[in-house]
Write a protein that binds this DNA or RNA. Structure first.
Length: 450
DNA sequence: GCATGATCATGC
DNA sequence: GCATGATCATGC
């Protein structure tokens, strides 16, 4: 046996670790336990799939140490669930890479940060999570040694600095997933009321962890599975540019030459084919400015889960439209708690707004771009209030009367359907037109300082 | 003039 | 055929 131990692989050797991991592909932990002739009492093993994998398959002790799991090889082992959505495999959740110690992280430099020391080389084991199934029977789908490409690592470095800067400003309690692009400070506690101390403020903050967003995990999954899907992805900013400027400034720079021009002028300059009456007209112009050909998607936008929206401002200064989210299912909505609601998830994302002002003759003129995420406080007050009230009224069988724009400064509910025949059942069995949550245009305008 | 209710265009 | 993002119509 390598290294004089009884391990079925050499924990100091990267290739040996990887080869051992790759034997898992297409198999389950129960099968592997049988093959390796080890006893695993899956029912009593706390911590589910991840700890069983570490303890019994790799025979390492799961723990919160500051060094990678395979210390000599510098590799950190992570297992993470997949789910099936319309026959495709996607990340079930973000990948947590370690709790944030607010008091310690403020003293760290990126180059020798505990995050980087531990997570520079990740051995990712993706398994298909199926509700109701014993974790021992989850099928392992992907095994991947993941090292961040330089251009991704630059964005992650900038994300890390953004998070640390907020803690240094005494604003750890205002951290939000939407602040950053790939690496996020996500809440991490079984008890959502739990708070912990931060170094530069007396305000207690939610315990948070550094995590790769689900959108970033999806990019790893696609990269591992489907060559075809990769084809349409175009990176916009390379590592060299990112070493000189941050990602969001680099994107703003792309738009700068077109500020002050009308949409039609920009479309003409860039050869945009979409017709002016098409609802995708502004999206096509945005893509063209970013240098995307039809059918291409911006790699970083996708990996960050950025929500791109066009906003038009009327000559009067008020926004022409509010911003919609996708229609909800009344019956599913009332099953959700606020903490795990789709609305909260959507509002935790980062947005990219492309803003046009209508001039005196009604032509839209490109005015500005803005990256934005909803302040945590507004999410937890306004959005939450709208959500709770909506759920309450549907439960009371008053789904016809949901919170209106005049009821809430930031979020309201409106119809969002194909037409009046596009209905869906409420819990009581009434058929009502589909509705969705909307962000109030006036709120966004104020938020963006327009 | 604005909130509210209703519907459209496109791509997958 | 529908989800998604966007836009229109009307009545107060």
């Amino acid at each position: 046996m390598p290294n004089g131990t009884e391990l079925p692989y050499d924990p100091t050797d990267r290739d040996s670790i990887l080869a051992h991991a790759q034997r898992l592909i297409g198999r389950t932990l129960r099968e592997m336990a049988r093959d390796l002739d080890v006893q695993i009492d899956f029912t009593s093993d706390k911590g589910g799939f991840g700890s069983a994998l570490e303890r019994h398959y790799f025979r390492i002790n799961p723990g919160n140490k500051s060094e990678p799991d395979f210390e000599e090889a510098g590799i950190e082992l992570k297992s993470t669930p997949l789910k099936r959505v319309r026959s495709k495999l996607v990340a079930k959740e973000r990948l947590v890479l370690g709790m944030i110690d607010y008091c310690a992280i403020v003293g760290e430099q990126w180059e020798n940060s505990s995050f980087l020391r531990k997570n520079a080389h990740l051995l990712l084991v993706f398994y298909l999570h199926e509700p109701g199934k014993d974790p021992a029977d989850f099928v392992i789908k992907i095994v991947r040694l993941w090292e961040f490409p330089p251009e991704d690592l630059e964005i992650i470095r900038q994300d890390w600095h953004k998070i640390v800067a907020k803690i240094r400003e005494g604003r750890a309690h205002e951290l939000s997933e939407g602040d950053t692009l790939y690496l996020a400070a996500c809440t991490k506690s079984a008890d959502s009321s739990k708070r912990t101390k931060q170094p530069y403020s007396s305000v207690p903050a939610k315990p948070r962890a550094l995590a790769l967003k689900a959108s970033y995990m999806n990019s790893i999954i696609r990269d591992s599975l489907e060559r075809r899907e990769k084809a349409g992805l175009r990176p916009l900013v390379d590592a060299q540019e990112l070493s000189k400027t941050d990602f969001e400034s680099a994107i703003a720079e792309r738009f700068a030459p077109y500020i002050g021009k009308t949409a039609d002028e920009i479309a003409g300059l860039l050869g945009v084919k979409a017709s002016r009456s098409s609802k995708g007209y502004f999206a096509s112009i945005t893509d063209a400015i970013l240098g995307l050909s039809p059918g291409e998607r911006a790699a970083e936008f996708e990996k960050a889960g950025l929500v791109v929206r066009t906003m038009r401002i009327l000559p009067s200064g008020r926004p022409k439209e509010d911003i919609s989210f996708r229609a909800f299912d009344y019956r599913k909505l009332v099953e959700q708690t606020w903490e795990e609601s789709d609305l909260r998830e959507e509002l935790s994302k980062r947005f990219f707004f492309v803003i046009y002002r209508l001039n005196a003759s009604g032509a839209p003129v490109l005015a500005a771009t803005r990256f934005w995420s909803m302040p945590l406080n507004d999410v937890e007050t306004h959005a939450r209030a709208c959500f709770e009230e909506t759920v309450l009224r549907i439960r009371e069988d008053r789904a016809e009367y949901l919170p209106r724009k005049s009821d809430n400064p930031a979020v309201h509910v409106r119809p969002h359907a194909r037409d009046s025949r596009d209905v869906i059942e409420t819990p009581s069995g009434k058929k009502l037109c589909k509705k969705s949550f909307w962000l109030n245009g006036s709120y966004i305008k104020d938020q963006l300082g327009l």
